[in-house]
Structures are given as structure tokens and as C-alpha cells.
Design a binder for these strands. Structure first.
Length: 450
RNA sequence: GUGGCUGUAGCUCAGUUGGUUAGAGCAUCAGAUUGUGGUUCUGAGGGUCGUGGGUUCGAAACCCAUCAGCCACCCCA
């Protein structure tokens, strides 16, 4: 019998970790609700064609496909063989796998909006906190199953939405105690305008991918990459000038204006940035690009500053997301929090409150059958007062019972032995200070505060 | 999908050019100690050396395959 193992890139979460993760989830959800977002959940799986082609060529490869049932049916063997041939040729075949695990929350949301848009009240603001799956090779901070926390507003072009989403970032990080972070902002239209200056709008993806790596590989390597993509020396110089723009938000804006020569495409982007950076906590970063190619307007990225970790959140505006599903003209903007990375940041900076790990507040010692019967009925009354209690499961040595309390970080123990039963009292001990006192059982039951 | 490193007790790790019965610390359990824990002392249990095959008189060590983890690339959260 070999030991069972977990599928690659998946994890079990021990109780302590679940509490910490829930603390993050609940904080984020609370803020989302505060801004009027409503919860939505979609199934773990979608029809394969709903997902295929939405994440680019690379993305398609990373979609987890689900094998159809009944492929071994002898009557359908010929068809199954043909379908499988298709797969070997690199084509999709619904006959073998018609469903897939969801890859992110945005496309299923778009599918939901496209199918329900007639019933929805716009602007529709929803948040969604669910696991997603990617058939990627696991690595530091990258898993095959992980949670995304998204909030999107669809059916509104107002920049007020961007302003609100930026404030959601601030509120969430504030609530979690993450003080030293940077909320970076850029605009896809500015990148488009840059691409137009350098060989055409269709070059935008190449430029975006290359400059996104700037802080990772440095300017020289970015230039190398660009020349591999057949940008001319002149074009690379323009991009270099673009990347070297520095200073305050206002300085950056004035420099970008002269660089882009007031070209029409970038103008809207600059205006929108100007509107948003009235909030000085936002930092314009023209090197911010973000991979997902459905973004068309403002893009965001949040980074923790005193921890060596990538982004802890990102998002942006997209025109016409549901157009992919035959419902045009529903624009939207959304943001996402990277829970696993936020977890790592908080762990490293020691930001989780210690109180998270107090589950049971009181442990009743077990001193024998008669004693434990008394303890049990008192314990039930405390439980009904919403105090979390346990009675040790058997009559064991004090040593053992103490150690159980310590390990479970239970702050108080209560001893009720024959002496206490006779006197109708109980002994309460604070495990960390060692203080103890004896009070009447009545008082404990009716009003004692731990 | 491509490349590199690693895998020994519950955990962290030793283990000599391949050589008797594979070790330590922490943890666990028992006792000193069944009405007061954290300290100390004594003792015990715990291993198919990731898995499968191969080389060898002999493999934890060498070779191949496989699985898993870590790291980098591609891409991304």
C-alpha cells in the first residue's frame, strides 16, 4: 500500500492556515459589500467552448479539460477513436472532453452576464471569491488550484467606477494592516498610442509583454527582446524614452504628452489618468502593461513594497467583454486580489492577529465520570451563552489535559472535582499567566466573562 | 511545454571512494508525578532510505524510468 499523495500543484490547508485565509477572504468580502457589490458564484466547470480562445494561445494550453464519461461504451467506440484522433492532431474534440475547469472568474462572469443581461439591473456590480484551475507547472507562489477574489462593474463607462475600485484596494489593504504598498496605474490607450508610433497598433501586445518585464530583466534585455521582435532602432529609442519617463505624476503626464505628440489615441488615456491621480495615493507607472489582452482602458496593479513578492492585485477596464458571447456594448471594469500572495506578505510581516488562532476559549478538565457529568451540564450552558468550550475526552492526568490546552491555544481551563461539586464552585485558571481563582458555578453560568 | 536541483523517522537534517544491525535534534508515548502544565531526568516506539527496475559478492549512495517538491524560462495570480 503506497501512501496517497496530492495532485501536482494542489494543497491541503491545515486549520491554522484556513483561519488565516478566511480572515483575508472575509476582509475583502466585507469591503466589497461596503461598496455595494453583490456576491456571485458560478460552477467549477464550464463548457469547453466557453473558455477556449479567451486567454490566448498559451492560455488555451493551460485549461484543465474534463474527460467525458461513457467513452468505453462499445457502441460508440468508433466515434471515440475518431474524436481521439482529432485530439492527437491538436484539435479540440467535444466528443472526448466537452467541459473544463474554470480558468479565471472573469470569463465565466462574462458568460453569466451575456446569458442573463435582460434580467440584470445595470450597472451590475458583483464580487466573486472562488477557486480556479490552471494546468501550469507549479512554482513559487503558483499553484494549479488557487482562489481569485474579483470585483467587477459592468454596464457603465463612468470613471467613477475606477475611482471606487482604487478605494477598495486602499480599504482592503488598510483593513489587513498592509501599509506599505504601491497602487500603480496606467492606461492601455497610452500603450496603444506608443505602439502606433512604433510600427502600428497590432504591435501593442509585443510591446506590452516586453516592457512588463522591465523591473525583472532590466532595460538592456528589454531592448534585446524588442529587436528580436523586429522593432527598428528608431522605434526602440522611442520605447526607451517612454520607459525612462520619471518624476511625480504631474511630471510624468506632461512628459507623456510631449512624447506622444498629442496623438489622438493617447489623449483619452491621459485625460483619464489625470482624473484618477487627483488621488495622490495612485502612482502612474508607464511600464505597467498587464498581460491579459482584453483590457482596453485604465489598468491597475498593487504591489507590496517591503516584501520581495510580485503583485498582490491587479485589474483594469475592458470594453465589450460580453461581445465574445454575442451581446455587444457592455463595458466593464474590475479588480482582483491575489490571496496566496497577500497571505505570504502578511505572514512575513506578521500581520495576522493572534486572536485568530483561539478557537476553543475554555477547556473543562475531566476528573472522572461523576465530575465530568457536572462539568458537561455547566459547559452546555456556557455554550448557549456563545462561549466556545470543550470537555477533555477522558479522565487523564493533569499533565495531559494541560498539554492539550496548550497545544490548542485554549486560554482558560476549568477544574471541577469532588471538592468543587460539594461547594458548588469551580476553579478557573488562565493558562498563560498561571492566575487562578475559585468562583461559584452560578456566577460562571450566568455572567462570568472570559 | 523546456531546462536545472532535491527526495533518508511526524518535522529539520547527518550518513566517509559502494561495506556489518541507517543516526541526531525536535516532536510523540510511558515512568519519576492521578488536584496544577511549560523545566529536568530515565526509558520506549517509530524507517520497504519517494516508487519501480538495473549494475554489483554487497546499494540510502552508482545508472535508467517514474512520481512529487523547489528554482528558472514561457506565461501568469
Amino acid at each position: 500500500m503506497t501512501k496517497p499523495s496530492l495532485p501536482q500543484g494542489t494543497r491541503d490547508f491545515e486549520p491554522e492556515t484556513v483561519r488565516k485565509r478566511n480572515y483575508i477572504f472575509n476582509s475583502i468580502k466585507t469591503i466589497f459589500e461596503r461598496y455595494g457589490f453583490q456576491p456571485l458564484e458560478t460552477p467549477a466547470m464550464e463548457n469547453l467552448e466557453t473558455l477556449m480562445g479567451k486567454y490566448g494561445e498559451e492560455g488555451d494550453k493551460l485549461i484543465f479539460k474534463i474527460l467525458n464519461n461513457g467513452l468505453d461504451n462499445p457502441e460508440k467506440q468508433d466515434q471515440a477513436r475518431k474524436d481521439f484522433e482529432n485530439i492527437l492532431m491538436g484539435k479540440n474534440s467535444k466528443g472526448i472532453a466537452g467541459k473544463a475547469l474554470k480558468y479565471d472568474l472573469t470569463i465565466p462572469f462574462a458568460r453569466y452576464v451575456a446569458t442573463n443581461h435582460k434580467q440584470l439591473t445595470f450597472p451590475f456590480k458583483r464580487y466573486q471569491v472562488q477557486p480556479v484551475w490552471r494546468a501550469d507547472r507549479p512554482q513559487k507562489g503558483r499553484y494549479r488550484e488557487f482562489y481569485q477574489c474579483d470585483a467587477d462593474v459592468v454596464g457603465s463607462e463612468s470613471l467613477l467606477n475606477e475611482k471606487e475600485l482604487a478605494n477598495i484596494y486602499h480599504d482592503v489593504f488598510h483593513r489587513l494592516g498592509i501599509r506599505n504598498y504601491e497602487l500603480k496605474i496606467n492606461h492601455r490607450k497610452i500603450l496603444t498610442a506608443l505602439a502606433e508610433l512604433c510600427g502600428g497598433a497590432e504591435k501593442m501586445t509585443d510591446i506590452a509583454i516586453a516592457i512588463d518585464k522591465l523591473d525583472k530583466i532590466g532595460l538592456e534585455k528589454v531592448k534585446e527582446e524588442l529587436s528580436k521582435k523586429e522593432f527598428t532602432r528608431q522605434q526602440i529609442t522611442v520605447i526607451e524614452n517612454y520607459l525612462s519617463i520619471s518624476g511625480t505624476n504631474a511630471e510624468k503626464l506632461s512628459k507623456i504628452k510631449s512624447l506622444l505628440n498629442n496623438a489622438g489615441t493617447g489623449e483619452k488615456g491621459i485625460k483619464e489618468l489625470e482624473y484618477l491621480v487627483a488621488d495622490a495615493r495612485l502612482a502612474i507607472d508607464f511600464t505597467l502593461a498587464r498581460g491579459l489582452n482584453y483590457y482596453t482602458g485604465i489598468i491597475f496593479e498593487a504591489k507590496a513594497k517591503d516584501v520581495l513578492i510580485g503583485s498582490i492585485g491587479g485589474g483594469g477596464r475592458y470594453d465589450d467583454l460580453t461581445g465574445l458571447f454575442g451581446v455587444p456594448n457592455i463595458p466593464g471594469v474590475g479588480i482582483s486580489f491575489g490571496v496566496d500572495r497577500i497571505y505570504d506578505v502578511m505572514e512575513e510581516l506578521n500581520l495576522f492577529p493572534a486572536s485568530l488562532q483561539v478557537s476553543t476559549q475554555v477547556l473543562f478538565f475531566n476528573l472522572g465520570e461523576e465530575e465530568s457529568n457536572v462539568s458537561f451540564s455547566i459547559m452546555q450552558q456556557l455554550r448557549h451563552r456563545d462561549i466556545r468550550c470543550e470537555l477533555y475526552h477522558e479522565n487523564a492526568k493533569f499533565d495531559k489535559q494541560f498539554k492539550y490546552a496548550e497545544r490548542k491555544k485554549i486560554p482558560y481551563i476549568i477544574i471541577i472535582g469532588s471538592k468543587e461539586i460539594e461547594e458548588k464552585t469551580c476553579t478557573i485558571k488562565n493558562i498563560s499567566t498561571g492566575e487562578q481563582k475559585t468562583i461559584y458555578q452560578n456566577e460562571l453560568i450566568s455572567s462570568y466573562q472570559f
